[in-house]
């Protein structure tokens, strides 16, 4: 599903992680760990194609659905309207199953600005189920979720994996998945000035 070889990712032109090599097969999940600022988000953004890698290659057979820190939920629209928008973008349909799976059925007609942080997060995560994409890239998906919602979400990830999907998850807490683990501390780049504009001045 996803194969990464000798990857170097950069933030602001400065390498943060280097020499990353890993593979995620269908049905597998990879959990990225490491302290704040180690480069989890940068790595996920690179895998999602939002920024180019500094070196190395990324080979993905399936398209990726990316879930960032921010949920991308519009406060003026209701939960259902928000999700229907994403379904429209990905060419799928919003079904009651998806709403039920993320415990949003009762909130469907509430304007998103009246939701709590955890409910917003669930709305943001429900988007993943609408993408129909096999590879999920999740950046701290459990932030502001309560224990019950974390379990609910872990169940959804498991279901996704069981249907041949894969996931790369950056998370501090153990969401109870039977997953591969990658500690990013081992790949922290040695301070270099590659690509830094000041180096040319």
């Amino acid at each position: 599903m996803l194969r990464v070889r000798d990857l170097t990712v950069a933030r602001g032109g400065l390498a943060v992680l280097e020499g990353l090599t890993f593979a995620v097969a269908p049905g597998e999940a990879l959990v990225l760990s490491g302290p704040n600022g180690v480069g989890k988000t940068t790595l996920l953004r690179t895998l999602a194609g939002l920024q180019p890698p500094l070196a190395g290659e990324i080979e993905a057979t399936g398209q990726a659905a990316y879930a960032s820190h921010a949920d991308g939920v519009k406060g003026q629209l209701t939960v259902a309207e928000n999700l229907r928008f994403w379904a429209g973008i990905y060419g799928t349909r919003l079904t009651d199953d998806v709403l039920a799976a993320f415990a949003l059925a009762d909130l469907a007609d509430r304007p998103a600005r009246t939701l709590s942080a955890g409910q917003l997060r669930r709305t943001g995560l429900a988007r993943l189920a609408l993408t129909g994409r096999p590879l999920w890239l999740l950046d701290e998906p459990t932030v502001s979720l309560d224990a019950e919602s974390v379990a609910l979400f872990a169940g959804q990830v498991r279901r996704h994996l069981a249907t041949g999907g894969a996931a790369v998850i950056a998370s501090h807490i153990d969401i109870g998945l039977d997953a591969l683990r990658l500690d990013l501390r081992a790949y922290v780049a040695t301070e270099t000035a590659t690509g830094r504009d000041e180096a040319f001045l």
Partner: peptide
């Protein structure tokens, strides 16, 4: 607005 709530990045990774 799309930038602030993160939907711009999400749209950029979508098929659109």
């Amino acid at each position: 607005l799309d930038w602030e709530d993160g939907s711009l990045a999400l749209i950029a990774t979508s098929p659109a």
